[in-house]
Each structure stands twice: as structure tokens, then as C-alpha cells.
Simulated assay, not measured.
Amino acid sequence: MNQPAEVFQPLQDDDPRAVAGYRLAARLGPGATYETCRQLTSETEASHKLLLADKAAGSEICVKHRNGDIALMVIETKSTAMPDIGFVASDLTVWPAEKN
């Protein structure tokens, strides 16, 4: 993989080593790019659920739509302490799927 070294951070002692059967190799640090998200989402067609309660403000999440669009979601603000009135505010960058 040819990602910039500063984008990936080592797992911390209290980080899980696997989630839903998927091995975790590193944390996605600040500064994710299209290329980073493209590589991270190219391995699977599976759908994954993500718990936002354990994500902090500033967390970056790469996603891929079934039409091939790739997006980077950055959590700006979140409130999940009271689930009935919880909310998430985020910044979303979308790169349209490449057309052949």
C-alpha cells in the first residue's frame, strides 16, 4: 500500500485488534485523501454497521456507495448521551465514481 505514513497511526494498547471479523492494522489519522479512502474501500463489497457512540469529534470515516462514489465523512460534533435526542454533524467530501 502506498499511503502517506502520516495518515495511518499505530493501534493503541486499548484498541481492538478486530471488528466484526475484520483485522485492524492501524488507525486512520487526520488528513485522509481520495487515494487513502479508495484503497481502504477497495477490498470488499460487504456492508458494515458503524457505532457512532465510540467515535470522537474529528474522526474520519471512509465510505463507498454501491454506485462507486467514495466519500470521506469527518465528524464535527456529536451528541449520543441521550439516544432519543442524539445527533451528529459532519463534513462530507464525495468523489464521484470514475466513469469508463
Rank of each mutant, 00 (worst) to 15 (best):
Y34K: 14
T44W: 05
K49E: 15
V19F: 01
I70S: 00
D54W: 06
A25N: 14
T41N: 03
D15L: 07
H48D: 04
R38F: 01
A26N: 12
T93Q: 12
N100Y: 10
G29F: 13
N67T: 05
H65C: 01
D84P: 07
L50A: 04
D14A: 11
I61V: 15
N2H: 06
E76Y: 08
T36E: 00
G21Y: 14
L92M: 11
D14S: 10
E60D: 01
V88E: 12
V94R: 10
E60H: 00
D69W: 05
A46S: 13
A81Q: 15
A53Q: 14
V74G: 01
T36L: 00
E43D: 05
A56E: 15
Q39N: 07
S59W: 08
L52M: 15
D91C: 03
H65W: 03
A89I: 13
S47P: 01
N2E: 15
D15G: 03
A56K: 10
K55N: 04
M73R: 08
G58P: 05
E43M: 06
T80H: 13
P96N: 00
A25L: 15
C37D: 01
L72Q: 01
N100D: 10
L11H: 05
S47I: 11
A32C: 02
A46D: 15
T33H: 06
S42V: 02
K99V: 12
I85H: 14
I61M: 06
I70Y: 01
P83N: 03
A71W: 13
G21K: 15
V74E: 13
M1K: 04
A46M: 11
P30F: 12
Q39I: 05
I70W: 00
L24G: 00
G29V: 03
D91L: 10
K64T: 00
G21E: 13
